[in-house]
Nucleic acid binder design. Structure first.
Lengths: 172, 172
DNA sequence: CGAAAAACGTTATATCATAACAATTGGATT
DNA sequence: AATCCAATTGTTATGATATAACGTTTTTCG
C-alpha cells in the first residue's frame, strides 16, 4: 500500500484536515463539485464566482470578505465590495460555501450536494474549521424545538475550542 | 386561585414569553438578579450599565448596539459608541446578557447565575427569542467533539424559524 | 438578430465595532 | 478630610463588514 497523501473522503466529513494532506486536491475537488452542481441546476459559475470559490478554498480557515477582495484585486482590476459580496451570496445560495456567523467569515463546503446548515468546530489557535454533519445533534434540536411548536428553518451551530493538534503542541 | 399575569419561572427557561405576561416584572427581576450577582462578585453595576441592561430587557427581542445607543442618548448627553459597547462587554462578561452572533444583537439572559453559552430559538417573524438550556444538546456536541480530540470552549447555537404564535397567525 | 434577463461596474453610504488617550469618579488608605 | 490608585467614562477618530442604487455589459433564448 502507498502511504500516500491523505485525501480520503472521511476527513472532509468529520475531521480536521491532516497536516500534510494534498490541498491542491481539495481545491480541485471543490471546483469540480461546484461545476457539476451548477451544470445540474442550470446555474452559472462565472469566472469571478469560480475564482472566489477557489480563494475561499485556499485554506481550511474561514476567510473574510475583504481579504477575498484584496486577493481578487490583484488579478481583477475593477473589483469592489459588491463584486465579492455578490459572488459570496451566489455561492452561499448554492450551498458551495458556508458563512461562519461568529467570525463574519466564509468557508468552503465539502459536501455541497444537499443544502444544509453546517455544524462547525473552530480552533481558537490554528483557526482551522471542521464541518460536522451529525444528525443526532440536528435532530435533537429539531425535536426540542418541535415540542415548543417552533418550526426550525435554519440551525447555526459554531463550536469554538482547541483542536487535537493544537492541544498536543501546547502541552509540548 | 388568581388567574394572574404569567411570571412563572418555567417560561424563562424554555419557552417564548406569553403574549400578556407581566413584562415590567421581567425587567425588575433581571435588574434585581444583576444587582445580586454583582454584589456577590464585587462588580460594579454602574448607572450606565444598569440602564443598558434595562434597555436590553425592554423586550424579548434582540437589540442592536446602535439602537441602544440611540435610546441612551435620549437621556444621557455624552453617549457614544464606546459607551454602549463597554456596557455590553461588562454585561456579557458577567453573563447578564448574551450576544446573538447571527444578528449582531444582544438579548437579556434570564438565568445569569451560572455562566453558559446559550441556545436560542429566534422567530423570523416576531423576532422574539427563547433561550433553551438543553443539556442533551450541549452534551451531544461535547461528546462528538471529544471523539475528535476537540476541547469545546464555547458553543454558539442559534436556531432560526417560526414560533408557535406566528405559525398560528399565518395560517389564520 | 433583438429583446429580456442576468451579471457586473461604480459610487456612495449604511451598519457594526474598536483604538487611543484624556478626564473624571469611586472607594480604599492614611 | 486629603490623597492616591484603579476603574470608569468622555471624546475623537477610524477600522471592519455589508448593502443601496443605478448604469453598463454580457449572456441567453425566442
Amino acid at each position: 500500500m502507498m502511504p500516500a497523501k491523505q485525501s480520503s473522503p472521511d476527513f472532509k466529513k468529520s475531521q480536521f484536515p491532516a497536516k500534510n494532506h494534498d490541498h491542491g486536491r481539495c481545491i480541485d475537488d471543490a471546483v469540480a463539485a461546484a461545476e457539476a452542481l451548477c451544470a445540474r441546476k442550470g446555474l452559472r459559475l462565472t469566472k469571478i464566482r469560480r475564482r472566489v470559490l477557489e480563494m475561499v478554498w485556499q485554506g481550511h480557515n474561514p476567510v473574510g470578505a475583504y481579504e477575498l477582495l484584496d486577493r481578487l484585486r490583484d488579478e481583477h482590476k475593477g473589483a469592489a465590495p459588491p463584486t465579492v459580496y455578490r459572488a459570496l451570496e451566489f455561492l452561499l445560495d448554492c450551498g458551495l460555501i458556508h458563512r461562519i456567523e461568529s467570525l463574519n467569515a466564509y468557508v468552503g463546503c465539502g459536501t455541497p450536494d444537499h443544502l444544509h446548515s453546517g455544524q462547525f468546530l473552530i480552533c481558537r489557535h490554528c483557526k482551522r474549521i471542521a464541518e460536522l454533519s451529525d444528525d443526532t445533534i440536528s435532530e435533537t434540536i429539531r425535536s426540542r424545538a418541535d415540542r415548543l411548536g417552533f418550526a426550525v428553518q435554519r440551525q447555526t451551530i459554531e463550536i469554538l475550542g482547541d483542536c487535537a493538534d493544537c492541544r498536543r503542541s501546547q502541552t509540548a
